[in-house]
Design a protein around this nucleic acid. Structure first.
Lengths: 162, 162
DNA sequence: CGAATGTCAGAGTCACTGATATAG
DNA sequence: CCTATATCAGTGGCTCTGACATTC
């Protein structure tokens, strides 16, 4: 009735793999969730090995790609909430990967800049991320990867406005 | 620097839509997450209007599609943890959508069955879910929907084993 | 004045762990 | 004896809300 040799508290009492997908397994929302969770775990595992989280990469990457920005602007770019950005930047600043400087033109703002150490860190994380994404998409051909990303981008755009 | 007329605490300080995607916006793991969250919110909103959650549908659907099962078996089918299944079944049983009967062949088990009321509820939820998925995938042609689901299924299979 | 910024404190949800009593 | 089942209690992470002082 059950399957292989697994002790009690494994993952979530896994199904008998290889079976044809049930109705709920074909639900896009479910598929998205399951894939997101698994991809996240994979990424978190690898990144925690170097003491990083994916948000670190997101922020550093944005700073390098689009230049310095206020925290609110960074928040917009990355999709991370203003309120959560604070602690995140604290983490990055502790390691001197970023620096906060008061904006002379607008004293409400901090200008956040990436440091040299931050750039080095970013390269390290970028390499890791590339490996992770590559493992993630291992079963797909380059064309399929493009296709998947494109579909997800379009879906994202559609859901953005609800 | 900012965009339209939005009060302070909207969503997450949204980006200027329509811009070309940045590096991080093209990351599959990020795309999956964002889409999953948004799809979830959409589903939760609609389902809460009739006092349901997506897990209700998952369980009822599984019972109808694959027949009665023990809680552990249901857990395997749906991917919901055994420990979370308890409260979920309590909710469903309160409304008499499912019933727990002791399994005569194995007194550790409860056999969970769907009731007539449960079947009616399932139909109601299935209709809602169809609408939700339809809205979710609105921008895609039928062929593209199949494609997306197929890609996500394959990805899921791949990540299942890590 | 209304709106944006950085910050903090906390809610709600979800995946997940661990332990226990009971039964195979 | 080891394993499975149903159950309960609790953790950790993440999204998200609300409020506040300061500045535009």
């Amino acid at each position: 009735m059950t399957n292989a040799a697994r002790t009690d508290s494994d993952h979530a009492d896994m199904p008998a793999a290889g079976a044809p997908p049930t109705r709920i397994q074909r639900l896009p929302s479910r598929l998205l969730n399951q894939n997101a969770n698994r991809a996240d775990r994979l990424a978190a595992e690898r990144l925690s090995a170097v003491g990083a989280r994916k948000w670190h990469y997101a922020v550093l990457s944005s700073l390098e790609e689009s230049g310095p920005a206020s925290q609110a602007e960074l928040s917009r770019r990355t999709g991370i909430y203003r309120s959560d950005m604070v602690a995140l930047l604290n983490e990055l600043a502790e390691h001197d990967y970023v620096r906060r400087a008061p904006d002379p033109d607008d004293r409400r703002r901090n200008v956040v800049l990436i440091t040299d150490a931050g750039r080095t860190r970013l390269e390290e994380l970028a390499k890791l991320i590339r490996q992770i994404e590559d493992d993630l998409l291992a079963p797909f051909s380059p064309a399929e990867r493009e296709l998947l990303i494109d579909l997800l981008l379009r879906l994202n755009e559609h859901l953005e406005t609800r």
